Amino acid sequence: MLIPTAVNALKSSRSISWSPTGRLQQTLAGCLELSGISLHSGKVSKVKLCPEFAGRGRYFDFKSNFIPASIDYAEESPLCTTLCKDGFKIRTVEHLLSAMEAMGVDNCRIEIANEDDEDSEVEVPIFDGSAGKWVDAIGEIGLKLAIDQCGNCCEKMAPYVNQPVHVWRNDCYLVAFPASAVRITYGIDFPQVEQMQNMGLIKGGSIENALVCSVSKGWINPPLRFHDEPCRHKVLDFIGDLSLFAQLGSQGIPVAHIVAYKGGHAMHTNFVRHLSENIRVEK
């Protein structure tokens, strides 16, 4: 069986180069379906993950509208990452994409539906606030090698950072340094939650799916899974947002040591755009 490489289809620059990982692209071994309440809208949505051909990458299917999980379709939205195309929006995609990036689901069709058929936007369920349910479901269904429409396997590529790349705003910053392996260092500083409620968000939030902290009482819903769980959650979000850099079934996370302080979804996606713009400008 032939093993074509995607390197010729991926653009490189002085800042980023694409190299083979030594692994073949994968997809799901079968379909899986989960449903649950969404964090911000409070509505119930249903998600079905399906196998896809090599080189297709990950994309959402909402009312027969196909929205690639790509930075080209990401837009700024409060407290989540949203993909938008032709007026249709998929909100809070970060945990699902983080799970697929980490589990090696390189190619996947993500069918999503809302309880309200008239809506032009839909939100991915929040479950317990982590990516655990997605990881467990993917692990149960398993993976298989992805083949293209000609029956060939494809080599998986990864982006390598060759020189420092950074973005910042006030005292918040994100910088990637060249490294031989992926490493993420993250510092956080959260504002009070009341602001989110005043914006009409977190309607589906509860102590079952969110970390709640009081200035006087400390953590309302202990025990935490990890002593540094709030910071780990930001890394989870970050991986999902970085996955938007993936192209043609490639790896989305850059091989680099990435240092972040007080980042958020807007800064994450700005960083990925910066990586993409560097490639387009310096090709």
Rank of each mutant, 00 (worst) to 15 (best):
A9S: 15
A9Y: 12
K11D: 13
K11H: 11
S12A: 12
S12Y: 04
S12W: 03
R14F: 12
I16R: 03
S19V: 15
T21I: 04
T21Q: 03
T21A: 02
G22K: 09
R23A: 14
Q25C: 00
Q25A: 00
G30S: 12
C31L: 14
L32G: 12
L32A: 13
L34E: 12
L34K: 11
L34W: 03
I37F: 09
I37V: 14
I37D: 10
I37N: 11
S38Q: 05
S38D: 09
L39K: 03
H40V: 03
S41R: 06
G42M: 06
V44I: 15
S45E: 01
K46P: 07
K48Q: 14
L49C: 08
C50K: 15
C50G: 12
F53C: 08
A54F: 00
A54H: 00
G55W: 01
G55T: 04
G55N: 04
R56E: 15
R56F: 12
G57F: 05
R58H: 08
R58S: 10
Y59M: 10
Y59D: 06
Y59I: 02
Y59L: 10
K63Y: 07
S64N: 15
N65A: 11
I67C: 11
A69M: 05
S70C: 12
Y73G: 07
A74Y: 07
E75D: 08
C80R: 06
C80V: 00
C80Q: 09
T82W: 05
T82L: 10
L83M: 01
C84T: 14
C84G: 13
D86P: 08
D86L: 07
G87N: 06
F88K: 04
F88G: 02
I90E: 07
I90C: 09
V93T: 09
E94H: 00
E94L: 01
L96W: 01
S98D: 06
S98N: 03
S98E: 02
A99P: 11
M100F: 00
A102C: 14
A102K: 14
G104A: 08
G104E: 06
G104C: 07
D106Q: 05
D106N: 10
D106L: 03
C108W: 02
R109D: 11
R109W: 05
I112H: 12
E115T: 13
E115D: 15
D117P: 14
E118L: 14
S120G: 11
E121K: 05
V122M: 04
V122F: 07
V122R: 01
V122E: 06
E123N: 01
V124E: 09
V124P: 10
V124Y: 09
F127S: 09
F127R: 04
G129F: 03
G129Q: 02
G129T: 02
A131W: 07
A131T: 05
G132Q: 08
G132H: 08
G132E: 11
K133I: 14
V135S: 06
D136C: 06
D136Y: 12
A137N: 04
I138W: 01
I141Q: 03
G142Q: 08
G142F: 03
